[in-house]
Simulated scan of single mutants.
Amino acid sequence: MSQDPEDVAVLPPPRRPGATSADVARLAGVSRSTVSHILNGQVTRFAEETVGRVRDAAARLGYVPSAAGRSLVLGRSDLVVLAVPNTTLTNVQDIIEAIAADLDDLGYSVVVHFDRGGGAAANLARLQHVVDTLRPAGIVDLGSLSLRDLDTLEEQGCPILSPRPRHVRGVDEGNLAIARTQAEHLIDRGYTALAYAFLVDHRDDPFGRMRAAVVADVCAEAGLPAPTAISVPLDAAGAQTALCDLLRARGRPVGIACSNDEVGLAVSFAALALRAAVPGDVGVIGVGGGSVGQLVAPRLSTITFDVRASVGTIRRGVAAARGGVAEDDDPTLSPEIFLVLQGETT
């Protein structure tokens, strides 16, 4: 019984191992430079028939242009460098994944560059080497770089794709909203003496410094004394010592904005161990909305937010810089992104 030719599956030609642009040029009957231009998207100068022949030949041979070749032709690669600070931020992986997904939608791949904590000059030198080597389409900075560093990289020919902080002391929109929400919540709950609790850690905490500065601004706007900064280790004795010193200096009640939920839990249980009322003598609010803080008693009050929405300004900035959707007239983040998850510690 014979088969109808239309019912026979047509298999694609087998991939040819190690196919080169010369092989594509030979099969298509064009020069290698023509192959290079067409496969890198520069097709306006060629006839539609020529473009079709080159693309068909590349598909038949399984040829994929190298990233290095694209970089030489276009003057840049399709890579974006994500500069991540040497930070104690607990949800940094979630932030990286959200930005990487957005960039993938825009046709870019992410190379993550971590600040290893060797100092600002060493971090910038390493990034400059990355820029020279990869010729990235641009850099997205998560707080790893100063405004001067960003200027230096732009002068080197690398676009800065993330929006620059518009506020004093380089505070970005996300950290501004988080810290302001923390401070205003504590004040609304009746606390007129505030503190900011950092995590004791060998890593740097640029986000903590930004948030502490914003908490100080909110206190000044409300006519309250400047907040006290404390450093809290994640061990019971150390946390109790830090809180005891704070209560001795500031008295009771005191509202404490914490750098993350882990610090918030350490402070809350230190207060209970010192027989301080929570809330009452001590009010505590963390950041992150982590599940652990909602499983203990007292439940931790915290700031919760959608990570993908919180990096929306970065997506819009990249899209605008790369010729995609227009950037919003107002690049600020919606206040509804950062919400208080009311627990039992405020």
Rank of each mutant, 00 (worst) to 15 (best):
S2W: 11
P5S: 10
E6K: 15
V8F: 11
L11H: 13
L11E: 13
P12G: 13
R15Y: 12
S21E: 03
A22T: 10
V24N: 06
A28T: 10
N40T: 04
G41A: 00
T44L: 13
T44S: 14
F46S: 06
A47W: 14
T50W: 14
V51N: 07
V54Y: 06
V54L: 03
R55D: 01
A58I: 04
A59V: 02
L61R: 06
G62D: 01
Y63K: 07
Y63F: 10
P65A: 06
P65G: 07
S66V: 00
A67D: 12
V73L: 12
R76K: 08
D78M: 05
D78N: 10
V80K: 01
V81L: 13
T87Q: 15
T87P: 12
T90G: 00
I95A: 07
I99D: 05
I99Q: 09
A101Q: 13
G119R: 11
A120D: 11
A121V: 13
N123A: 10
L124A: 03
L124N: 04
V130Y: 09
V130L: 12
P136E: 03
A137K: 04
G143K: 11
L147S: 15
L150S: 11
L153T: 07
L153G: 04
G157P: 07
C158R: 05
S162E: 05
P163L: 07
R166G: 14
R166N: 11
H167D: 11
H167W: 15
H167E: 14
V168H: 11
V168L: 14
R169I: 10
R169N: 15
V171H: 14
D172I: 13
N175D: 14
A177W: 14
I178N: 05
T181K: 09
A183M: 02
A183H: 02
L186A: 05
R189E: 06
G190W: 11
A193V: 09
D201K: 12
D204E: 15
F207E: 09
R209K: 05
R209W: 08
R211Q: 04
R211M: 07
A212H: 12
A213G: 14
A220N: 04
G223P: 09
G223Y: 05
A226I: 12
P227K: 03
T228D: 05
A229M: 02
A229W: 06
S231V: 03
V232G: 01
A237C: 03
L243A: 01
D245Q: 15
R250F: 02
G255A: 10
A257S: 10
E262T: 02
V263Q: 09
G264L: 02
L265W: 00
A266R: 06
V267E: 01
A271Q: 00
A273Q: 02
A273S: 06
V278K: 01
P279N: 00
G280N: 01
V282H: 10
V292R: 05
G293M: 03
G293V: 02
G293C: 07
V296L: 10
A297L: 05
P298S: 00
S301I: 01
V307R: 13
V307I: 15
R308S: 15
A309M: 09
R316G: 05
G317R: 07
G323F: 00
G324M: 08
G324E: 03
A326Y: 03
P331N: 07
T332I: 04
I337S: 06
F338S: 00
F338T: 00
T346M: 05
